[in-house]
Amino acid sequence: MVHVSATPVLALRGVSKRFGAVQALTDVELEVHAGEVVALVGDNGAGKSTLVKTIAGVHPIDEGVIEWDGKPVTITRPHDAQALGIATVYQDLALCDNIDVVGNLFLGRELRKWGVLDEVEMERRSRELLTTLSIRIPSVRIPIASLSGGQRQTVAIARSMLGEPKLVILDEPTAALGVEQTAQVLDLVERLRERGHAVILISHNMADVKAVADKVAVLRLGRNNGVFEVKTTSQEEIISAITGATDNAVTRRAARTNGEVSK
């Protein structure tokens, strides 16, 4: 049920962000539709994390407009982003090692019955959620500490799904994972898309990007450096956009027209 709607779920129009003397983002444009995975790539310091943090409400933007479902919104606090339906899974996992999977999934929004934890219902819903997302873990009642890195990452992503978000931001979800674990996480990203969520995927790994993303947005030195359709673009083209190896008047023009085509 892949369907790409006309109005993007999230659109950034000319977003800029400064930290003191540093211009972190300049006139950045980005569009994400429902049921679409947009990979955000760029070298270290290109502004990926800053961009994600502006969307997540950690750093409010200085200039530009953020549109949500076509309407301009202001996101100044993480709470604003959550209220809109934006879930962010950060690189350093926000899980408690000593608490079991069920407890972590519902951390901060525990189900209650007469003021007491409703463990049975939480466990039932956890199993349901993990089954829907085809996540396999040894038991929902073992502490997070006993899970592998990939399993933890899938739990962290599953946790973000509990609030039924429209947009899920994944910050380098496969950075520290092995082959099989990476495959599990990528499967999960595809399932998010099938369920009609919009996904922003930050990654350094071109293989991952080629595997799951629909579009690749390249950032370079805080500016857009092209938006590519994954199917029609070679890995080399994306890499040269990231590194700026082709950063001259000719390629800039090519990248620009390419970007316009994909829009």
């Binding site: 092995g178 082959v179 990476t182 790994n205 071109m206 293989a207 991952d208 890995q235």
Partner: peptide, 9 residues
């Protein structure tokens, strides 16, 4: 960059 997968494992 594409070697990330194998090296991570």
């Amino acid at each position: 960059m594409s070697i990330d997968k194998t090296s991570a494992s």
